[in-house]
Amino acid sequence: MEWRGEGILLTVRRHGESAAIIDVFTEEKGRHAGVVRGGASRKIAPILQPGAQLDVAWRARLEDHIGAFTVDLIRSRAGAAMGGRLALAGLNAVTALLSFCLPEREAHAALYRRTGMLLDLLGQDEIWPLAYLRWELALLEETGFGLDLSVCAVTGADEGLVYVSPRTGRAVSHAGAGDWADRLLPLPPVLRGEGAAEDAEIVAALGVTGYFLGEKLAKTLGERPLPQARARLVEELARRV
């Protein structure tokens, strides 16, 4: 069994004295783990930094074995990420969420491409938060918890949408909310691609996506809490407000 492809390194875990077990996110194979022999060595360890774009070749005797990777660096993103506090928090949040949310060996080609683009924007702090918000919406969509913010779930109107139903993830207008308004989540315009996309609004929007990640998606993954790295990113953004 073997394949070769390009992937984004998500996690690295030391294995024994000199090897490492890595998790890469590839276009065709999805999130895929494997052993890198010599992965803890002086030569290879610096390559294996989260976010790195790698050329990987996987080989195993049987399909369900963990198998071994040989890796080659295409592009490191750690340098860009370490240049700034927000970029570093962002890189940690993206890799931690993907590692947390995605099942192994299930392709998510569109999300893979979006992730690559998002990580390539690391260091551009003016546009990165909005790109990250869009990416989280795509992550929810890919994992089956996408938000439908096009029309009001109650009245069908496409204007005056100010709430999101925490149960269905659909938009609700002020008129449609009625007495239920205090049980609904606020809908910041930036979630619908409207408004100025200020940091404060993006933080509020991440509160909504965070609700669905934590209360819906995470609940299906064995009641595990969301990775702390995401909370640290939101804190970092809130600090800029």
Partner: peptide
Amino acid sequence: AQGVPIGGELDYLDDGTISAALR
């Protein structure tokens, strides 16, 4: 500081290290 190690040659450095050194 982060950047070019003593005895290091630019040709052999990864792009992240070069960026850090330049910054």
